[in-house]
């Protein structure tokens, strides 16, 4: 468990999806990958595959056509996952709030962990948000481990988790 946790904390992979933003935040996201800001020093890589991603970077106010795609992407990312909403419009709609084809922010569709405001969000802000997301990712990863009240049983048996004793323990509670 600890090895996986270490690996994730050092090298989280990013999935970026534009849900109808103005491209401003997207080019700033690209600028974050380039020499001056260089987010790769945190081990982050921009990968297009949702099944390998740990952090979802969402820009834009979520248009009605992008809604299903966003949901689909979110469900494909394995646990633990962190969602970062980049830009004012993804945090709550921004100027696009209450336009007829817009969902008023990412939080209306999927749960958001970190909000990065700004129009367009500066690279420094984005890095700050992503580093905060790292912390949350670690906590979420820990929560996914064996619950504390079951740890004794797991440790007590040499052959790993015994299913029957686990069930017995659950029945007692």
């Amino acid at each position: 468990m600890k090895i996986f946790e270490l690996g994730k904390a050092k090298s989280p992979w990013i999935l970026h999806y534009n849900t109808g933003s103005c491209n401003g935040c997207d080019i700033e996201l690209l600028a974050v990958l380039t020499p001056r800001y260089d987010v790769e020093r945190f081990g982050m890589l921009n990968k297009g595959n949702p099944k390998q991603a740990d952090i979802l970077l969402i820009t834009g106010p979520v248009t009605k056509r992008c809604r299903e795609r966003l949901l689909n992407l979110y469900l494909q990312v394995p646990e633990p996952k962190v969602v970062v909403a980049v830009g004012t419009c993804s945090c709550g709609g921004g100027v696009f709030r209450h336009m007829y084809n817009v969902e008023n922010g990412v939080e209306r569709v999927i749960p958001v962990d970190v909000y990065v405001p700004g129009c367009a969000a500066r690279p420094q802000q984005i890095i700050d948000g992503v580093v905060k997301a790292l912390q949350i990712l670690r906590e979420k990863g820990r929560a996914l481990e064996v619950p504390p009240h079951l740890k004794k049983i797991v440790r007590g048996r040499e052959g790993g988790i015994d299913r029957e004793s686990l069930l017995e323990d659950l029945r007692r509670r």
């Binding site: 109808g20 933003s21 248009t63 209450h98």
Partner: peptide, 22 residues
């Protein structure tokens, strides 16, 4: 057309002309 937000419509319903450039 994935990114259609409806900006043209909003300029004739929501925002007055001084806000239009922004």
């Amino acid at each position: 057309s994935y990114v259609h937000r409806g900006i043209e419509k909003s300029l004739t319903t929501m925002y007055d002309f001084k806000k239009a450039p922004y």
